[in-house]
């Protein structure tokens, strides 16, 4: 237990900070994912074939390629891409992107592909009669989307979105390869310097279990609140 003391003696405070880092990265990645799915879900229903293709291409490629490969693409390609854009504006110095930003973007893009599919499924399971009813009533397109489709879509999407959240949470462990000090990275450092990997990785597993357990509790509450019928 001495290994978990706070301060100079143990790894308690470091591990606690990395625990908070995992929460922060998961939340920002999940938000990036929701933002991306707000862009790509409408494209799935577009009448333009090109837009539909772009959206399908995004979700198929990202869901078919390992997360680690996407992270490597961002990690090694990210600063190159930013430097390329900067060089157009005449800035030629080396730019290093923050590991937190790279990680959130990489995991966010993965999370976005899954949540786009969740929202698509939710919209498709809304009864078609409602679209027709709105047409008959002459309700404007953007109003019926906001007042009729959106509330129902969110309600239907919550259970599957909770799966996406769990997936995102667990995917953040992979960002440790880029050096961001979250639970996995901190355990790696602690295991290396104390030569006690069994303890630290088991403790990391426990921290992840705590995270999944409590997020499940919160999600269940939200689900109950919104599953009331209107």
């Amino acid at each position: 237990m001495e290994l978990l003391y706070f301060g100079q003696k143990g790894w308690g405070d470091e591990l606690f900070l990395s625990f908070l880092m995992t929460i922060a990265v998961s939340m920002s990645a999940f938000s990036v994912g929701i933002f991306l799915s707000a862009l790509f879900t409408p494209l799935k229903f577009s009448k333009l074939k090109l837009l539909k293709f772009i959206s399908n291409f995004y979700t198929t490629v990202i869901r078919g390629v390992p997360e680690l490969l996407v992270i490597y693409l961002f990690f090694f390609g990210g600063s190159g891409a930013v430097m390329f854009v900067a060089s157009i504006f005449g800035y030629n110095e080396y730019i290093e992107i923050n590991a937190f930003v790279t990680g959130s973007l990489a995991i966010g893009i993965i999370s976005g592909a899954y949540s786009t599919e969740v929202f698509r499924g939710a919209i498709q399971s809304i009864d078609k009669g409602q679209f027709e009813a709105c047409k008959v009533l002459g309700i404007k397109k953007n109003i019926y989307f906001l007042k009729v489709i959106l509330p129902q879509m969110l309600r239907l999407a919550i259970p599957n979105l909770s799966n996406v959240w769990q997936l995102t949470l667990k995917d953040t462990a992979l960002i440790s390869v880029t050096g961001l000090v979250e639970i996995m990275r901190q355990s790696y450092i602690a295991a290396g310097s104390t030569r006690d990997p069994l303890f630290f990785y088991s403790f990391a597993a426990l921290l992840y279990l705590i995270l999944t357990f409590f997020s499940m509790k919160v999600i269940n509450k939200v689900e109950k609140k919104y599953s009331r019928s209107f």
């Binding site: 667990k170 030569r195 990997p197 088991s202 999944t212």
Partner: peptide, 17 residues
């Protein structure tokens, strides 16, 4: 409930201890 990376590390690095 835990990432597969943790499970792999426990088995590969941890058990050797």
């Amino acid at each position: 409930g835990t990432p597969m990376l943790v499970q792999l590390f426990i088995i590969y690095f941890g058990l050797a201890q």
